[in-house]
Computed example of a mutant assay.
Amino acid sequence: MRVRLAEKRDVDRLLELMRGLARFEEYIDDFAVTRESVLEHGFGDDRLFTALVAEEDGDLVGMAVVYTIPWTYTLRPKVVLKELFVEEAARNSGAGKALMAAVRSHAESIGATELIWTVMDGNRAAEGFYRSLGASPDLKWHNWSLNLDAKAPRAR
């Protein structure tokens, strides 16, 4: 198992892995990511995210997509793990652990104080996996969202 930064040549396979996660988390009908958007936002000087890929026998079997919050109250960055996905056939192969180790190394290399992510409600396998790495849920904070496409009352 080898983990490395995704390269432009990986875009099509990376997009397949992103779609795999969208199917697993049941938002495939809303999935709007395209090859062009991955190229635009994931590569180059002004990229919005960094993608790491797990490669086994020449095939990409997993991915981690992260972005950085440049600074917070500590005046140091935080790294947000936006997506972690390993194809079903490659689960329990060490790909997830290798990806998380690479994400952690990336976060440490930029002086981040914290690595944060969310877990889909009811995904006990993911919770167990993250606990095995020494992570724990943040009981102080709850995720909230505001759908800006929906008709909702505005604050006055």
Results as ranks from 00 to 15, higher is better:
V61A: 05
E25M: 11
P137Y: 05
L15F: 06
R76T: 10
G128P: 01
R19V: 02
M120L: 15
V66T: 14
L84T: 11
S37A: 09
E36I: 01
R13E: 10
D45P: 13
V61Y: 05
A22F: 11
A89W: 07
L39Y: 05
Y130Q: 05
G128L: 02
E25L: 09
A64L: 07
F49I: 08
G44A: 07
F31T: 01
A64T: 05
A125V: 12
K97S: 12
I110A: 02
A125L: 06
D45C: 00
A32R: 14
N123A: 09
I116K: 09
L99I: 08
Y130P: 06
G94W: 14
T74N: 09
T72L: 03
K78L: 06
V80E: 00
T50I: 14
R19K: 15
V61D: 01
L15Y: 10
I116R: 12
D12N: 09
D30G: 03
A125F: 00
R47M: 11
V66L: 14
L15M: 11
T68V: 15
E87R: 13
A102D: 04
V80T: 01
A112E: 05
L139Q: 11
P137N: 07
K82T: 09
N92W: 05
H106K: 09
L52G: 03
G128Q: 13
G62D: 00
L60F: 03
R9D: 10
G44S: 10
A95T: 07
L139T: 12
E25I: 10
Y27T: 01
I69G: 00
G58I: 07
A102Y: 02
G96Y: 10
E114Q: 14
S145A: 12
P70V: 02
N123I: 07
T72V: 10
D29V: 03
G62W: 06
L99F: 07
A125E: 15
T34Y: 04
R124Y: 04
L48A: 15
I28G: 03
L52D: 05
V103H: 03
M63W: 01
L84N: 06
G20D: 10
H41W: 03
G62T: 04
D59V: 12
S37G: 01
P70N: 01
L15S: 06
S132E: 09
T72M: 03
Y67K: 02
V119W: 01
W71T: 04
Y130K: 06
A125S: 12
G42I: 00
R19G: 11
A101Y: 02
S93F: 10
G42S: 04
A90R: 11
E88F: 07
A126R: 08
L81G: 12
I110E: 02
S132P: 11
G128A: 07
L48N: 13
E26N: 13
Y67L: 13
Y67Q: 09
R91D: 10
L60E: 08
L5G: 04
D30S: 15
G58M: 08
R76Q: 13
V61N: 02
E88W: 06
A54Y: 10
V103P: 06
D12T: 11
K140M: 00
T113L: 02
A51L: 07
A125N: 08
N123L: 08
D29K: 13
T74E: 14
